[in-house]
Design a protein around this nucleic acid. Structure first.
Length: 987
RNA sequence: GGGCGGUUAGCUCAGCGGUAGAGCGUCUCGUUUACACCGAGAGGGCCGGCGGUUCGAACCCGUCACCGCCCACCA
């Protein structure tokens, strides 16, 4: 027996362990099946599962589980990223907390050993958490970016790119001395992508630079520059003005005296100086500003650095130029700045300028200041020698691959983002001044000669050739950007550069799933490196999902305190509920707004499925291997099989299009609305007919609050004249066995105006019907439940597996590899659909009317059909038990004569549905209700008529559209006529 | 400055040329034995504004407004 409720916390760990140990997630390189590969975006080894992970891994797991069920040989490659900066920071913080010496005191080797130790102890957090989410990763193949094999791949790539020369004879990896984004807190170079601009409320300082050799009172005695960074002025080597500047151009060629420093700097012409901005003159500090660096290169200016690696002032490079100038420059002041922090120096410099009267003015100024995304402090452009990768060369084939569609983005609009960045790609700084990471395989000789090699030994061998003897070599201290190794993930995890059978089989992969924030960092680099080294794109599809936000659409962040922990949600509601919520909310190009309330409401779907299964269990519904859907003969079974076909086809199509949200909605609707609300309810009278029909009404019809007409007395209804009903021809007579239930009720009985006392159903026997009909319904129910479980398995693996096992659809843990459902032939599905559609509409109509008239559902009433065709009456007869049960009917009959007084009417196709409710209805209310219905239909008819009167519409619209409108008009007009007739019957 | 996305029921969102939809919330009714994490029913929207294309626009085009994001840059 299934428990009353699904208990995820008990069931999930057990099922996951079973899956994993039974090898259900493992790929099979020896299989003949078509492979399907997804490379996990390796989470940081320091990470713990956050909502972004929950989103991306749920989406991937849905795709992976679905494809596995389709029979593909799935490799979902797991692993983690060594995450250079992040991990180094974590371990350094830990060392500090434990009161250890810092890493520099500790030494490189000992520190790295400590990081490995940390990884062994704490690096498994994220992978454990992924298991809790239900991610079906092939754990036996787990990789780490610093594994020996992956490290070998990194060296292979580095050496190869270094040795591959571009058109100018330069390696695709090369060393260069230029400005780099320097993070003074972490004391390492970072790439452009790791810089985040933050809006800062600062100041614009206007500083007066005296012109050298100018006379007192001369108009051009000073040139004023504006700056947001006065402290960099120590490194100024020019002042630039626009060559066509109306007034300042006259000063070009003269020199300014750099305040504080006393050095003479030229006033140069450069169109970089925008006459509209600031004062029109701009100070040039080539070593501390990217634009100024370019100006400095153009004019061959000196480039002294005045800030060091900790962003403190250093005067070493300008010491020789210091000169005392009365009232302008004082070498002692500048020397006094040496070693001061950049912001302290700024303050001091501003104060000194003010004291000297060289500060023309200060304005408040809000501007974007670049910050390091990890360190969080303003970055400092710094002149250093770093290793670069010529991304421009590598980008070209990657751009082409997307242009030609060999790799496609979903949604497509992200291709524009990709192109925009790739077509203007900058040299990629790949060296980092860290210890944790892949050490750059470059060695330096005593004279600075560089030897790039696979190993220390190989480098020594090269040096021996170079020098003619054994020279002492020193390996480069730096490590590579983490993304350099991540970019190799699609093939380094498969054994490259070895030619493994996994590499041949699983590269290229199929889909890459990630967020848009990673397109540049990772997707672009995998494309570039994958194409360059494997000659093929690493994946044919890049599926980009949104970001997870909180319920109000705010980005989740620690500072806002709106972080939602997926593990907490799993604890509270179960992994299936969380996963299904994510699936339902992840529309293309849309962020996922998620909160506990949403997960809680989706949990009820898990419960619903569980309870539907309990119903099946209670009704002895069990899988029947001999069941043949094509042989189903009942309208009910043919209808549900037909509807299941439709759900299967549409769910599969949605997954093909990566529309996880549509897939979820289709499954949800089919399970809840179609299977539970309709099929199960219709099945009940067949499965246990004793329980069919409404609960017992009052024994005495006269005491029923519905029937007696308070105005005319209890005898009134009974005294209404009743005409004989139509004889239903034998062809329309219900055939025993073709309907869903016993047909003890005959529709050609004429309603006699009296409600029959209900059967005595006060003690329903818990018997299960064992008719052929009931057996067919049971087998069908089991078949369709099996489809539901398989359809939902990718989204809700736990509850579906549990039910699959409990019902014995297959061996334990077999759902994970059960065949994905495909549509099956159904006999005359359209007919069954039409039939059920009518029954549902009848029931809905009656329910609506009853609710509107405030008839309590405990009070059954008769349902009379007027003007119904024999076909309709036959249909009604076939479904009489279900109708009575679901529409709370005491009986169902045809009516040709006059309507009982005080009846309520509703129009259903050609027939009018009449509910005799004399006791409770007010004629005025009923008249208003019917008039409202009629007016609605009239409005509809008028709209369509207008359309059809438009000759252009009739002439130019497609024939089927015109025809459809004609039909709709006819239907509406017929409905109006019947509603008019109904109104006329009311006195 | 360049670009992208969004604006549809109270909320979250589907729909993207031919009858405006769902879930949640609201209101009403219901102790029907699968399920109150339930069932039934109802109310609720000139689909951001203005133009245009079309027989027909929530949907296509233009434009504006507001919200969000990305890139560049602001001496």
């Amino acid at each position: 027996m299934l428990d009353k409720a699904f208990n995820p916390s008990e069931i999930e760990p057990r099922l996951y362990a079973g899956w994993e140990s039974s090898g259900a997630f493992a790929c099979d390189p020896g299989s003949s099946a078509v492979p399907f590969t997804i490379m996990i975006p390796p989470p940081n080894v320091t990470g713990s599962l956050h909502m972004g992970h929950a989103l991306t891994f749920t989406v991937q797991d849905v795709l992976v589980r679905w494809r596995r069920m389709q029979g593909r040989d799935v490799l979902w490659q797991p692993g983690t990223d060594h995450a250079g900066i992040a991990t180094q920071m974590v371990v350094e913080r830990l060392l500090a907390e434990q009161g250890n010496v810092d890493r520099r005191a500790m030494g490189r080797e000992a520190f790295i050993e400590r990081v490995w130790q940390w990884k062994a102890e704490s690096g498994g957090t994220i992978t454990r958490q992924l298991r809790r989410l239900g991610a079906s990763l092939d754990w036996a193949r787990e990789r780490f970016t610093m594994d020996a094999g992956l490290s070998a791949a990194v060296r292979e790539v580095f050496v190869t790119l270094y040795r591959t020369k571009d058109a100018d004879g330069r390696g695709l990896i090369y060393r260069d001395r230029r400005l780099v984004n320097w993070d003074p807190r972490l004391q390492t170079a970072i790439s452009d992508l790791e810089v985040e601009n933050q809006e800062i409320k600062g100041h614009l300082w206007y500083i007066t630079y005296p012109i050298a050799g100018s006379m007192q009172g001369e108009p051009g005695q000073f040139i004023t520059v504006a700056t947001t960074r006065p402290e960099t002025m120590l490194g100024d080597t020019a002042v630039a003005v626009h060559p066509q500047h109306p007034t300042l151009a006259a000063l070009i060629g003269r020199h300014a005296i750099l305040p504080l420093v006393g050095r003479l700097i030229p006033i140069i012409a450069d169109s970089y100086a925008d006459p509209e901005k600031g004062t029109g003159a701009v100070k040039i500090t080539p070593a501390h500003d990217f634009n100024d660096f370019a100006v400095g290169q153009r004019h061959e200016l000196p480039m002294p650095s005045v800030l060091d690696r900790q962003a403190c002032v250093t005067v070493a490079e300008i010491a020789d130029a210091l000169a005392a100038v009365d009232g302008v420059a004082d070498p002692a002041f500048v020397r006094g700045l040496d070693g001061q922090d950049r912001f302290a120096a700024r303050k001091a410099i501003v104060a000194e300028l003010e004291r000297l009267g060289l500060l023309a003015k200060v304005e408040p100024h809000t501007h974007q200041v670049p910050h390091g995304d990890r360190g969080g402090v303003p970055i400092e452009p710094l002149l250093t020698t770093q290793w670069y990768c010529n991304a421009e060369v590598l980008a070209k084939p990657a751009i082409e691959a997307v242009e030609t569609g060999r790799t496609q983005f979903v949604p497509k609009q992200w291709e524009n983002t990709f192109f925009a960045w790739m077509r203007d790609i900058q040299p990629w700084c790949i060296s980092r001044q860290l210890w944790w990471g892949h050490r750059i395989p470059a060695w330096y000789g005593p004279d600075g000669a560089v030897f790039v090699a696979y190993s220390d030994a190989e480098a020594r061998a090269e040096a021996r050739v170079h020098y003619g003897n054994d020279a002492a070599l020193v390996q480069d201290e730096d490590v590579l950007d983490t993304w350099f190794s991540s970019g190799l993930w699609p093939f380094s995890t498969l054994g490259w550069p070895e030619k493994t059978k996994e590499l041949a089989r699983y590269y290229p992969g199929d889909v890459l799933v990630t967020g848009f924030d990673i397109i540049f960092f990772w997707v672009a680099r995998m494309m570039m490196q994958g194409i360059h080294f494997m000659n093929r794109v690493p994946f044919h599809t890049v599926y980009i999902h949104g970001l997870v936000r909180d319920e109000r659409g705010q980005k989740m962040s620690k500072s806002k305190g709106n972080i939602i922990d997926p593990l907490e949600l799993i604890d509270r509601f179960g992994a299936d509920a969380l996963r299904f919520t994510i699936c339902a909310l992840t529309g293309p190009g849309r962020d996922v707004k998620l909160g506990a309330a949403r997960v809680e409401s989706q949990r009820s779907f898990v419960t619903k499925l569980w309870n539907a299964a309990r119903f099946c269990e209670m009704n002895a519904i069990a899988p029947d291997p001999a069941f043949d859907p094509a042989a189903a003969r009942l309208p009910l079974t043919r209808w549900i099989l037909d509807a299941a076909n439709d759900a299967v086809a549409r769910a599969t199509d949605a997954l093909e299009r990566y529309r996880i949200d549509e897939y979820a909605a289709i499954c949800y609707r089919f399970t809840w609305n179609t299977f539970c609300d309709l099929f199960v309810e219709f099945a009940k009278p067949v499965l246990s007919p004793v329980m069919a029909g409404p609960p017992p009404g009052p024994e005495d019809a006269a005491s029923c609050p519905v029937m007696p007409d308070p105005r005319s007395g209890p005898g009134h209804a009974a005294s209404s004249p009743v005409m004989p009903g139509p004889r239903v021809g034998p062809e329309a007579r219900p055939r025993t066995g073709s309907g869903p239930a016993s047909t003890t009720f005959v529709l050609d009985e004429v309603w006699d105006g009296r409600d029959k006392p209900g059967h005595d159903r006060r003690a329903p026997a818990p018997v299960q019907s064992d008719t052929a009909d009931a057996r067919e319904v049971r087998a069908t129910a089991a078949h369709v439940l099996g489809i539901v479980l398989r359809l939902l398995h990718p989204a809700m693996p736990f509850v579906t597996e549990e039910l699959w096992d409990r019902f014995g659809y297959g061996a334990q843990y077999s759902l994970i590899r059960a065949p994905w459902p495909t549509p099956v032939p159904v006999t005359d599905g359209a007919n069954a659909r039409h039939e059920l559609d009518w029954v549902v509409r009848l029931i809905t109509q009656v329910r609506a009317v009853r609710a509107e008239m405030n008839v309590p559902s405990s009070t059954p009433t008769p349902i009379l059909l007027r003007d119904a065709t024999p076909e309709t009456l036959a249909r009604a007869s076939r479904w009489i038990d279900a109708i009575k049960r679901l529409a709370r009917a005491s009986e169902l009959k045809s009516l040709t004569g006059e309507m009982p007084k005080g009846s309520v009417q509703a129009v259903l196709d050609e027939a009018t549905v009449i509910l005799p409710l004399a006791a409770v209805i007010d004629l005025g209310t009923e008249r208003t209700r019917l008039a409202k219905e009629r007016d609605k239909a009239t409005g509809e008819a008028k709209k369509i008529a207008q359309k059809l009167e438009n000759v252009d519409f009739v002439r130019r619209a497609p024939e089927e559209v015109v025809e459809e409108n004609r039909e709709r008009l006819a239907t509406a007009q017929a409905e109006i006529a019947r509603l008019e007739a109904a109104l006329a019957r009311i006195e």
